[in-house]
């Protein structure tokens, strides 16, 4: 195994095995060794996160593991991102994401955000308890292609429909796709309110988001 291969393997391992120290040490080593930052991110960190996502789908990993893997990922990114050549930061598809008004449960939303970023999207996270108007305003401002809405509570589900109606009123329904998810939300509900997509977990959210845009987005965070 070459030195570069070992570094990439350790970056992936640091994320996959939730070992933030290993990721940070190895990311610094990658910088010292002048390893291409783009390669280090994609073949190291992102590869590890994708593997963690796979284990999550296979029910080997659950939410605590995925959160710690992402902490490790972001710790590595913080070190490597400043070393990226400017011209490789191409235009990425934008997703405005948040938990709808009345709800503060943001575990699921945070997971979706992480996996969307790993999947190559630029994610604008509005946080939790967000009014419908704020989603639409932000989507217009940043020219987002997708609005991602999450809720864990049945009582706040009507807020999702409100976002869809607002987009219709503003004539944006075709240009901005709405992706919904969360505990009580179902495919049937998504269809019922006129949302464009529904995903039952964070890794599927990436597939559905890519499907909605009909584009191939590289597995690249950079």
């Amino acid at each position: 195994m070459s030195k570069q291969e070992r570094i990439l393997a350790d970056l992936a391992k640091g994320v996959l095995e939730l070992d933030e120290n290993l990721t940070v040490t190895t990311a610094k080593e990658a910088v010292e060794e002048k390893l291409d930052a783009y390669t280090a991110i994609n073949d190291g960190l992102v590869a590890g996160m994708n593997e963690a996502g796979r284990l999550y789908e296979e029910e080997e990993y659950f939410v605590p593991e995925l959160l710690l893997a992402s902490d490790s990922l972001y710790a590595g990114l913080e070190i490597l991102t400043p070393h990226l050549p400017k011209d490789e930061e191409g235009e990425k598809a934008k997703v405005v994401i948040g938990v709808v008004q009345g709800d503060t449960h943001d575990i699921g939303k945070n997971l979706v955000k992480i996996m969307l970023e790993v999947g190559g999207f630029e994610v604008i996270d509005l946080g939790r308890d967000i009014p419908a108007e704020a989603f639409v305003a932000k989507a217009k401002e940043v020219k987002a292609q997708i609005i991602g809405l999450s809720t864990l509570m049945t009582t706040t589900m009507p807020q999702m429909e409100k976002v869809v109606r607002l987009l219709e009123e503003e004539g944006l329904k075709d240009s901005v796709k709405v992706l919904v998810g969360g505990g009580p939300v179902s495919h049937a509900y998504a269809k019922n309110i006129g949302a464009d997509g529904y995903a039952d977990n964070a890794t599927n959210a990436v597939r559905v988001a890519k499907g909605l845009l009909g584009i191939q987005v590289e597995d690249a965070i950079a």
Binding site: V63, L67, H105, I107
Partner: peptide, 11 residues
């Protein structure tokens, strides 16, 4: 805060 709490279960 639930996010750190869930991480604390492991770390």
């Amino acid at each position: 805060d639930p996010i750190p709490f869930l991480k604390d279960l492991r770390r």
